[in-house]
């Protein structure tokens, strides 16, 4: 049972790029064990929100806490905090083999090769371990990135458009993976069937501003969301 302070909390985050307000007073609590979706039209600020959590982008206002303590986002400290993130596209080391790509994500512990092999097995791509990512189909490369994120056994898994470019079968596999991930998941995604099926809560952004937050059924029936996004996405 988690206490109210546990998990990641974003408090009134505001980010400006010059004259563009990318995030406008965004707050969000990510409770341990939950799957939280972040949706919105292109340019709504979803990836910017992820980038703030990861430390790639600094917020002009607002703060973050992790388990109730102030959280200063720095990319190379994320793993130490138990946070793993995938990127849009496939974000891989094309000069490293599939196994090496996943090995690079091993955080600690003994027998890193076994940990990497287990992650590859879990993602159903063990047979590609010795191959180079650039030679593999896009869907397999997406799985490599997921294996690399999962191998660190994160307490918070941030997935940035993991279904992009995948076919129906692959998305069904992804859905199962998220359900069985046994960790907190933050999911930025345009594929509404996936979002509505796996998420416990959904934050909707529009032009950087949060316009709705709640369980999928509430979001699906919210007229503001329908007007801003779902009407177009459906």
């Amino acid at each position: 049972m988690s206490t109210p302070d546990q998990g990641l909390a974003l408090h009134h985050l505001t980010v400006r790029f010059g004259g563009l307000l990318a995030l406008d007073d965004v707050s969000l609590r990510v409770t341990p064990g939950r799957v939280v979706g972040i949706i919105g039209p292109n340019g709504a600020g979803k990836t910017t929100l992820f980038n703030v959590v990861c430390g790639f982008v600094g917020a002009q206002a607002g703060s973050m806490t992790l388990d109730g303590r102030p959280f200063r986002a720095r990319p190379h400290h994320l793993v130490r905090h138990g946070i793993a993130r995938t990127l849009q596209g496939v974000g891989q080391f094309n000069g490293l083999s599939v196994l090496e790509n996943v090995l690079a994500g091993v955080r600690s512990g003994r027998k890193p090769e076994q940990q990497a092999a287990a992650a590859l097995e879990r993602c159903g791509i063990a047979e590609h371990a010795r191959q180079m990512p650039a030679t593999l189909p896009y869907a397999v490369r997406k799985r490599v990135e997921l294996a690399r994120a999962l191998v660190s056994k994160p307490r918070i898994l941030m997935l940035d458009e993991p279904a992009g470019g995948l076919d129906t079968d692959e998305i069904r596999w992804l859905e199962t993976l998220i359900r069985e991930a046994d960790t907190t998941v933050m999911l930025v995604e345009h594929h509404m069937d996936l979002v509505m099926s796996v998420c416990d809560e959904i934050l909707v952004l529009d032009f950087g501003k949060p316009i709705a937050f709640g369980p999928p059924d509430t979001i699906r029936n919210d007229p503001k969301v329908t007007d801003a996004y779902l009407g177009a996405a459906a």
């Binding site: 790639f56 190379h76 994320l78 793993v79 891989q92 080391f93 094309n94 490293l96 690079a104 994500g105």
Partner: peptide
């Protein structure tokens, strides 16, 4: 491995905790 990863994709490497 970290040196090679950092050379190939610095931002991805940072996300994996590579200094």
């Amino acid at each position: 491995l970290r040196m090679r990863a950092a050379a190939f994709a610095p931002d991805v490497s940072r996300l994996l905790g590579v200094p």
